[in-house]
């Protein structure tokens, strides 16, 4: 048994300290979501004296937070799916230089990587309203797909370039078309890269606030971010339901994360390193 040095002990203490820093806000939110208004304040760790389920009833019935969670999932999942299919097709063409202007196309797509999409807020809002696209699932999904396109393109192109061309060539010998190659060979082989793009798009859409806040006006279409934001002016003095709404909005995505923990972390890591 090795003797622990002072430095090691400090190191461990720090590691646990940061654990507490990251967990505490969630702890406080969850505990508060079961308390009545007066019990929430002037305490740091106290548990509720009586569990106030009414907060959750109010979060579901009055705030309609579950609907918002569902909407967030629909937008995120939809955008994710569109991105994956379109990007993989486009990325394969560029990665294999199937067109003469592949290089130019790559530059064109990567331009978007360096531009914050919300800078285009006003033209997008105007365009969406003129076309009657507000408060509709499909256009929002396409918008989110377009906004997240450059990043996924960058990741997936990089990944496909790492896939040996021998595979394609073997498939061509077999008489496979380009489309066939993409969907039968590239999809399975490049799936780790594609998954990375998908997960990054998913989280980006799930967290998005600006476009959702300006384009979604119908209560039934609002996402988690928009709904939580709206709560501020609405019922700022009934805190319990507010905490309950936050908890309900965090739970599903946290569950997804814990289920696919390795993949989510790996995906984000790959994306982070390349970005």
């Amino acid at each position: 048994m090795k003797k622990l040095k002072a430095g090691d002990i400090l190191y461990r203490i720090l590691a646990v300290f940061f654990f507490l820093i990251f967990v505490y806000p969630i702890y406080f939110t969850v505990v508060s979501s079961f308390k009545n208004n007066t019990e929430i304040w002037n305490t740091m760790f106290a548990l509720p004296s009586r569990i106030e389920w009414g907060n959750y009833v109010s979060a579901v019935v009055d705030v309609g937070i579950l609907r918002a969670v569902l909407n967030s999932f629909i937008f995120s999942f939809g955008a994710c799916l569109v991105v994956v299919v379109l990007v993989t097709m486009a990325a394969y063409v560029v990665a294999r230089k199937l067109l003469r202007f592949s290089g130019a196309l790559r530059m064109y797509y990567l331009l978007g990587l360096m531009i914050p999409p919300y800078a285009m807020l006003i033209p997008v809002v105007t365009m969406f309203t003129e076309l009657g696209f507000r408060d509709k699932y499909w256009p929002m999904i396409l918008l989110y797909a377009a906004v997240n396109f450059p990043m996924s393109f960058y990741l997936i192109t990089g990944y496909i370039e790492g896939v040996s061309k021998e595979l394609d060539e073997a498939a061509i010998m077999d008489g496979c078309s380009t489309t066939g190659i993409i969907f039968r060979i590239i999809f399975p082989v490049a799936s780790p890269g594609i998954f990375t793009g998908a997960i990054i798009s998913f989280l980006a859409v799930y967290n998005e606030l600006i476009f959702a806040n300006t384009l979604l006006t119908n209560q039934a279409m609002k996402t988690i971010s928009v709904r939580l934001l709206g709560l501020q002016g609405e019922r700022f003095t009934s805190y319990g339901p507010m905490f309950a709404s936050i908890v309900l909005s965090i739970l599903p995505i946290l569950a997804v994360y814990l289920l696919f923990q390795e993949k989510v972390e790996g995906g984000i890591a790959a994306g982070a390193v390349k970005g």
Binding site: V82, L86, V87, M89, A90, Y92, V93, V94, L99, L105, Y108, Y109, L111, G112, I115, P117, A119, M120, P123, V124, M127, L142, L143, A145, A146, V147, F149, P150, F153, T178, T179, I182
Partner: peptide
């Protein structure tokens, strides 16, 4: 194969820019 992505990106990203 390139067209859908190109159109989407051009229409919703580049044109507003």
């Amino acid at each position: 194969l390139s067209l859908p992505a190109f159109l989407l990106y051009s229409f919703i990203f580049i044109y507003p820019m």
